[in-house]
Amino acid sequence: MSDKRVTDRRGAAPRSTRITPETATQRLGRLLDLVPWVLRHEGVSVEETAREFGISPAQVESDLELLFLCGTPGYTHAELIDAQWDDGHIYLANADDIAAPMRLTRDEAVTLTAGLQALSSILVNSEVAERTLAKLRAATTAGDPGGGRIALDLDDGSQHAVMAQLKQALADHRRVHLTYYVATRDETTERDVDLMRIVNLDGQWYVEGWCHRANAVRFFRVDRVAAATVLDQDGTPPPEARPRELDDEVFVPSDSDLTVVIEARPDAAWIADYYPNEGIERAPGASVRVTLKVADPALVRRLILRLGGEARVVSPPELIEAVADEARAALAHYGAGGTAR
């Protein structure tokens, strides 16, 4: 998408109209925070709101336009949220039902506490996690004395040795040798890695580092590391190694990734919200065309085969043919009578 520059309807200075692709879940979370924040800052400018939420002014206006369609059952003018920003300042009305900022329920507080305890147990430098955990415990015990402590046993024995080696390598700045299972190719590989960090995303532990096999920064799922050995070599990553900006996603597209366009019928249109993408085109009949950036085309081949006839690759041509070849190979495993061999 090009970064166009336009003058808005109020004659203000030109500004970016770029809207960063995101999932419906990510946008919903922001909207639930946006409404109470704007209500507490009545008359705040579109630009200041954009800075507060880390988005473009165009995305702020798109969010406000969506709020026009939100409200309580009945969905007449009296129930829908009223948003005004014609003079460049935002005013909301009829939004009392979501005026309060989201607060943690007891179950959410317990889950967050458990997660922070897990994080503290695994990080080499855990001061920030410990301070956050202390604040959460203080807030929890204020209404429920004794409720801020959770007995948590995270070690089932399966990954303890691997994680211990990874932590040691990271703390001592040593290179580590990994025996790593690559699920997309169903093969086990050997590689030397200079570690950069250990992170937990969506309930999975990952290690990020400079992989000398790929000569690039790579993410490795810890539960797919069969063995880790700390080497007697300096493990400082090269100057060109840069940690990726993760936000909420493990996958971050790069310039070297393959651009793929998938056409999905209504029953498979969920992929537009489920997978981070570069753009969505709505087609007649509730079908969608989704543009994705992928590092490994095998992921797309498997997705298309799993969806059957509900989705197809539109481009690039070489991936279209690869999917067709894989489908023919799968059919070859079936006999003339349709019985699997």
Rank of each mutant, 00 (worst) to 15 (best):
E318H: 15
L201V: 15
L195W: 09
A286G: 10
M102N: 09
L116F: 11
V300K: 03
I262W: 07
W270G: 04
M196P: 05
D325F: 09
R282Q: 12
V217I: 08
D255M: 09
V38H: 06
A226H: 06
V60L: 02
E61K: 01
G335M: 04
R306E: 13
V313S: 02
Y180D: 04
D186M: 06
G71D: 01
L319W: 08
C70I: 02
V207L: 05
G74L: 01
H177R: 06
R137Q: 13
G115I: 08
L231S: 10
L201A: 12
L28A: 11
H212G: 14
V313D: 14
L331Y: 15
T132W: 10
A93C: 02
N277R: 11
F220I: 15
D296S: 14
D63H: 08
A216N: 13
F219I: 07
A264K: 10
Q117D: 13
S62T: 00
K293C: 14
L231E: 09
A142M: 13
I19P: 04
L231H: 08
L136V: 00
T20G: 15
A13Q: 15
G148S: 11
H173D: 11
R131M: 12
A340I: 12
A322C: 09
R15P: 00
T339Q: 12
D255R: 07
M163N: 00
V60D: 00
K4E: 14
P239Y: 10
P239R: 14
S120K: 06
S315L: 03
W37C: 01
S254N: 06
T229Y: 03
Q59W: 00
V207D: 01
R328G: 13
Y180I: 11
T229G: 01
L307F: 13
E108D: 10
R9H: 09
T132N: 06
D3C: 07
D63F: 05
S126Q: 11
V252W: 08
R18E: 08
H160Y: 10
